[in-house]
Computed example of a mutant assay.
Amino acid sequence: MSDRIWHKGEKAFRIAKPMLLAMSGVLYLFPRFLLKELFEWTRGIPGYLGVAVRYPFLIRLFGSVGDNIAVMHNVTFAGDVSTASFGSHISLWSNTWIDCDGLKMGSHVMLSHNSSIISAAHVYDIEGVMMRDAVLPGPVIIGDNVWIGAGARIIGPVVIGSNVIIAANALVTKDIEDNCVVSGVPAKIIKRIGNNYSPIKISK
């Protein structure tokens, strides 16, 4: 693949980055509880305007944030966002649900429409304990170069390797190794793929 190929979103981010960082600096003047409310309000802003508005809030509220993270409209972040870390070049598409408790996401990750990352599960086999009262925390760790298909569900605790495709509507409840495609309910490996990927370089 040519080194001259670039994604227009990545080029736009590079141009806008100084302004976005300046906006995030201004947000440090406000208390976190107010910023959380304002961030929630930005969920409904569509298009690239919404992506640009939300990015400074990510820097201010989340534990660790890389470059060029596109959060589309109607993405829901639940749990303690300050414990979540994101790499760079990530796309979170509309109507996704993301539990942030302990979430670690690498770089070059795509989370498609209507998919979910759930970082806790209800335990059903403890005698005398109602399922609603038995919640097992389960952080989710995602590697680099991962494509999560539309409608997929990831329920922690799980570790998803790098160079992985999770097919649409798959249900992931167990760890996934590197370099594979998984599909089904529950998700199982259906194909092995090469590990010779490399991030696309942005032309100047």
Rank of each mutant, 00 (worst) to 15 (best):
V146T: 11
I154H: 02
W93Y: 12
H108K: 09
E127G: 14
I5L: 13
I202T: 13
E37Y: 15
L38N: 10
N145E: 08
I15F: 13
R60L: 07
T83R: 04
G138C: 02
I126P: 00
L92V: 09
I190V: 13
P199Y: 13
S119A: 12
I59F: 11
F13S: 10
V123T: 12
K8H: 10
L136F: 09
S107W: 03
D67I: 06
M19S: 13
V172L: 08
I59W: 10
E127T: 08
S198L: 10
G151M: 05
P46C: 00
V159T: 12
I148T: 10
M105A: 02
N114L: 09
N68Y: 00
W97Q: 07
D3L: 11
I154V: 08
K204N: 14
I193A: 03
A187T: 01
D99T: 08
G9I: 08
F62I: 00
I59K: 09
G161E: 05
L38A: 13
V140H: 12
D99R: 03
I154F: 03
P139Y: 02
I117A: 01
L35V: 08
N179T: 01
E40K: 13
V135C: 13
L103S: 00
I189W: 09
L38F: 15
T83G: 01
V159E: 12
R60W: 13
G50P: 05
T173F: 12
S107V: 05
L111W: 00
L58N: 04
T83A: 01
F39M: 08
